[in-house]
């Protein structure tokens, strides 16, 4: 009986893309003749527990977790989305007296999800106001729409959004928000990584996924995930991104 490999996706993907990941997984199983089970965890804590328990073999990881997976769990980077970086956006409610990051003062309330890379970059974007996690008040919520809600309800002064998630808020919601600053980092992306149990199948996965743009059906699947093609990454590319994350965390 062939082994079942466990596939998961960083919980920061937009909810509307959930079915697209299942469609990709179904196709990937057929195309590679591998038995792959997709498990989408509801939050970062439960996904991290699965990683800790060695219950993950293939993961589309955010940059923060990619760092831990490569350094501590022996995962190897395979692919990343081409021309799609992880950017963070800091916003306030329309009508807020805050016009620029520099207007924020110590003690301000920051609404955010558990998304680790967004929180890291978001705090970096507040540094010009001499703010950090020690002199701000966190307002933790479960989703990006709830970050917006915290701003509307005056439960927070400022909110962190993954750029993709912000763009997928309804027009009505976005009209009630005002962007203060958006990161333009480019070098930080999600990465598809494989664990030790998939070592012998890495090349097959890379070749199969890299060929997706060549067929209309599979190209459409990628579009549904929010990008147009995979880009092969080597260990050094990922080490560079990890060094960058280390520099931001330091």
């Amino acid at each position: 009986m062939s082994p079942v490999y466990q596939f998961t996706v960083s919980p920061d993907f937009p909810t509307k893309r959930m079915s697209s990941w299942f469609i990709l997984n179904t196709w990937l199983q057929k195309a590679t003749d591998l038995h792959i089970h997709l498990e989408l965890y509801p939050d970062f804590a439960s996904q991290r527990q699965a990683i800790h328990d060695d219950a993950v073999d293939l993961i589309y990881a955010n940059p923060f977790d990619a760092s831990m997976l490569v350094r501590e769990k022996g995962f190897v980077p395979l692919l990343r989305p081409q021309d799609k970086s992880d950017e963070c956006l800091v916003a306030v409610k329309q009508g807020s007296p805050i016009q620029a990051v520099e207007d924020l003062a110590p003690g301000c309330r920051v609404a955010s999800t558990e998304d680790p890379d967004v929180n890291l970059v978001g705090m970096m974007l507040l540094e010009p106001a001499d703010l950090d996690r020690h002199n701000t008040q966190p307002v933790s919520v479960d989703s990006y729409p709830l970050v917006a809600k915290a701003l509307f309800n005056d439960d927070a002064d400022v909110g962190f959004f993954l750029e993709d998630a912000y763009s997928e808020l309804s027009n009505l919601v976005r009209k009630e928000l005002r962007e203060l600053v958006r990161s333009q980092i480019s070098d930080i992306t999600h990465v598809l990584l494989s664990g030790p149990r998939l070592t012998e199948h890495r090349e097959r996965l890379i070749q199969t996924l890299s060929a997706m743009p060549g067929e209309p059906k599979t190209a459409a699947m990628l579009e549904e995930l929010g990008f147009s093609r995979w880009q092969v990454v080597d260990r050094e590319d990922t080490e560079f991104m990890i060094d960058l994350m280390d520099a931001l965390m330091a």
Binding site: E102, E127, P128, A129, D130, D243, L244, D246, A247, A250
Partner: peptide, 24 residues
């Protein structure tokens, strides 16, 4: 922020990351 890039236990290079400073 400048960090040493350690590969196989040895410093191979350095990465420097700069961000916007506060005026103060």
């Amino acid at each position: 922020t400048v960090i040493p890039n350690v590969r196989d236990g040895a410093i191979k290079s350095y990465t420097s990351v700069r961000r916007k400073p506060s005026r103060r």
